[in-house]
């Protein structure tokens, strides 16, 4: 983990209430896709946890949805402004387990961490399939990004206004992946986990006090004992989750 002052390189709307922000600063603490940042926003006491979407030597991309006051304030920030960020939090996805044909499932703003994961899997010669679920056509983002990486992409919308009508599980028909990675709301994670015979990893959310393991605010019980979502997670393996 590092704490640093990051400069906003860009901050733009990419779907309904959803923004993509590029931060420039120290990326040395990032070790795996699926890790997250904890972002201090002027005027709010607790930091906001947001997943790393992708990163390179000096920039970090995040994608966030405006749901409350903190994310609303972020959406109004402009290039050149700075943010106090804790970077490199959490375990992230373990890519060694992927096999040749992994499935990546993202629900809503659970999609961003799949982008960095997908790019790295492709770079390792893997052939990922990506299934994304959104509420409606205006919410869809990143479909083209995944496709340009060479992944097969399927999109489901709950209201049927775009792609397959229904949930991600409806768009997963016929896919028999070597392994899966999923991030999204808990009912989605559970449905994906139940639907697939394959083993996989799932990324969870919890309200956080610190984001780095100190306060026990984010604990959950697993088959292998108590875990802190922020430090021992946010990624848990299918086999350890107690639904």
């Amino acid at each position: 983990m590092v704490q640093g002052i990051y400069t906003i390189a860009s901050n733009k709307k990419i779907a309904r209430d959803v923004y993509e922000m590029v931060l420039s600063g120290d990326t040395s603490a990032l070790t795996a896709p699926g890790q997250f940042l904890n972002i201090k926003i002027e005027g709010y006491f607790l930091r906001r946890p947001i997943s790393v979407c992708d990163w390179d030597g000096d920039t970090i991309t995040i994608v966030y949805k405006v749901v409350g006051a903190g994310t609303a304030a972020m959406s109004e920030m402009a290039a050149g402004q700075t943010l106090d960020v804790l970077a490199g939090l959490g375990n992230g996805f373990d890519m060694r387990k992927s096999g040749g044909t992994p499935l990546l499932v993202g629900g809503g703003v659970g999609t961003p961490p799949m982008a960095g994961l997908c790019r790295r899997l492709v770079a390792e010669g893997k052939s990922p399939t990506v299934v994304l679920g959104f509420a409606s056509r205006e919410d869809v983002f990143y479909e083209d990004q995944f496709r340009s990486l060479g992944a097969e992409v399927r999109v489901a919308t709950a209201d049927g206004s775009y792609g397959v009508q229904g949930f991600v599980t409806d768009a997963m028909a016929g896919i028999a992946p070597s392994y899966f990675y999923a991030c999204g709301p808990i009912p989605m994670l559970r449905a994906v986990s139940d639907a697939l015979p394959a083993d996989g990893q799932l990324s969870f959310e919890e309200r956080m006090g610190c984001g780095f393991g100190a306060c026990m605010g984010c604990s959950c019980q697993t088959k292998y004992g108590n875990k802190r979502i922020c430090r021992d997670g946010p990624v848990l393996t299918k086999g350890e989750v107690i639904w």
């Binding site: 607790l46 919890e206 006090g209 026990m216 605010g217 984010c218 604990s219």
Partner: peptide, 12 residues
Amino acid sequence: FGNPTPRIAETP
């Protein structure tokens, strides 16, 4: 284990 989550909330 303590209490069920959520167990953190922000205040002014």
